[in-house]
């Protein structure tokens, strides 16, 4: 209670200071005939709106983890501990061995599939950084009961997923300390957007307007053949 009163008072003082700044700014023109001295750009004016965050508020929400380990909480977990958590919390959707149930995401395998017909994007085959797994599990899993796992459980689950993907042995324990030493197989498989150079040909001054194909166009594929559209009319329309 007293804190919020204090915060209000601080806000009021800031707001008044803002008002004073505005008055000063209005008086500026009188000084404009003096020689101009190049000064660094002034900091943007503050509105005084909002309030400073409490450290405990930042700690509660700022749980994002980066590849360099920033944001990792203290904790540890073994593959074996992870398997126990996994079987009760994850296996129903993701399958006992990460193979996925129904259309739920597959979590293991897929190595070597990225150039094939059905790329399987798992931690072992595709994800570049382990931090992504830890961050995502901690913030969003289990599905429908997010943020219910302890940090140790998230470490253990992450260790188990590494094991399922043949990245670590069964005896492995993942900790905050050894976290960034784990390298995922596809870490080198990504590069920044380069469309503006590699697809430069799509910027073309005068696209063809007439006789752009040597032969009349012909149909090479049809959606109806695949027949996966929901609620489609069985018969065609009638033209009047």
């Amino acid at each position: 209670m007293s804190r919020s009163v204090k915060a209000l008072a601080v806000a009021a003082v800031i707001a008044m200071a803002g008002g004073a700044t505005m008055v000063l700014a209005q008086q500026r023109p009188a000084q404009s005939q003096r020689p101009v001295v190049q000064a660094p750009a002034p900091a943007p004016a503050k509105t005084g709106l909002g309030r400073e965050a409490h450290p405990a508020e930042v700690a509660a929400w700022a749980i994002a983890v980066r590849p360099d380990g920033q944001g990792l909480p203290a904790g540890r977990g073994t593959v074996k501990q992870g398997e126990e958590v996994y079987q009760t919390q994850c296996a129903a959707c993701h399958g006992e061995f990460g193979e996925g149930a129904g259309r739920w995401p597959v979590l293991a395998g897929g190595r070597g599939s990225l150039t094939g017909e059905n790329p399987e994007k798992t931690l072992g085959s595709f994800w570049p950084y382990l931090s992504t797994t830890f961050d995502y599990v901690r913030r969003a899993m289990p599905y429908g009961n997010a943020q219910s796992l302890s940090n140790d459980e998230v470490y253990a689950l992450t260790a188990y997923l590494l094991f399922l993907n043949d990245v670590v042995p069964e005896t492995f324990e993942l900790t905050r300390e050894n976290f960034t030493t784990v390298r995922l197989p596809n870490v080198g498989g990504f590069y920044d957007d380069d469309r503006e150079t590699t697809e430069r040909a799509f910027w073309r001054a005068n696209p063809c307007m007439t006789n752009c194909r040597p032969e009349p166009a012909r149909v090479t594929g049809r959606a109806r053949v695949i027949d996966v559209t929901p609620g489609e009319r069985p018969a065609g329309p009638r033209v009047e």
């Binding site: 090479t220 049809r222 959606a223 329309p237 009638r238």
Partner: peptide, 11 residues
């Protein structure tokens, strides 16, 4: 010709 319209690929 009957007005029916379909998603197709052309080549």
């Amino acid at each position: 010709p009957n007005g029916e319209t379909e998603n197709v690929e052309v080549g």
